[in-house]
Design a protein around this nucleic acid. Structure first.
Lengths: 146, 146
DNA sequence: CTTGAAATCTCCTAGCT
DNA sequence: AGCTAGGAGATTTCAAG
């Protein structure tokens, strides 16, 4: 099991708000030396708690203004790994969530416009053993930014 | 409109993979000087294309192993801003997507266990003018990590 | 308007206590 | 975990295309 103490959690909170924060900044916040902070962050990466650092982008300003969730239903004998593999290979797909019950999966996509969305939905329906889709168009979104 | 050229997009790709990459690294990748890269990244932040930098965490290793999407339905007269505000104030809520049609919103939550999930669902049903919920339990997930 | 080079300052990292 | 030293990176300034 991963041993993560309160200081580690505080560091994770700080990095969640700004992943490019310097170790010096964080050291000041948590009351440790710079070296100690670096050792903790390195350790969090090594034990797999931190899986990476990424940039948050306003996709609406990059010509991919339409976002949607697509519920998928599959044939009963479809393997989960096959679902993720085939759906994940579609470039417009941002994330795939396999689910318990009905539907079988939830796919988050980002596209330029509605015609583009139609294309992606068609691709999904053709890829593998999809028996049905239901599309939820996103009008607005809010994400935790503590 | 935001003017983003191919070099900017390349920088965004590089930062998406590793947001703590140094300017020197990026300068080598895109064939510009360190100063030019910094200016471009600064500009992308200023014009709102880059909204932030964050850490990616394996929540399963932090005692929040259960993830779910909750579809919400509201009374017809409910304002979208009110939905987001009330739902977003629940700490377990990671994201809120307001939707066109039915359901009215999709809420992504992360909780310790099923008892905790039940608590959050109860809270959602009590907060504001929720008329119905439907919970999709996440078994597994995949996110684009280009 | 954007770039590159140089100077300065801060920060990172490793070794050691 | 802290301290320290040497190297690497960040940031500003200035000159040029």
């Amino acid at each position: 099991m991963a041993e993560v103490d309160d200081t580690d959690r505080l560091l994770l909170d700080l990095l969640r708000v700004d992943a490019r924060r310097t170790y010096s900044d964080m050291a000041g916040e948590v009351g440790l030396s710079v070296a100690a902070v670096k050792r903790r962050v390195d350790r969090l990466r090594e034990i797999g708690v931190i899986t990476g650092f990424t940039v948050q982008v306003d996709h609406a300003r990059l010509g991919a203004g339409v976002e949607a969730f697509i519920e998928l239903r599959f044939l009963g004998n479809t393997r989960v790994s096959a679902i993720v593999r085939s759906v994940g290979s579609i470039p417009e797909v941002q994330a795939v969530f396999t689910l318990a019950g009905d539907p079988d999966a939830l796919v988050q996509v980002r596209v330029r416009d509605l015609a583009h969305l139609q294309l992606v939905i068609d691709t999904l329906r053709r890829s593998g053993s999809v028996t049905g889709t239901r599309t939820l168009m996103v009008l607005g979104s809010w994400e935790r930014r503590d």
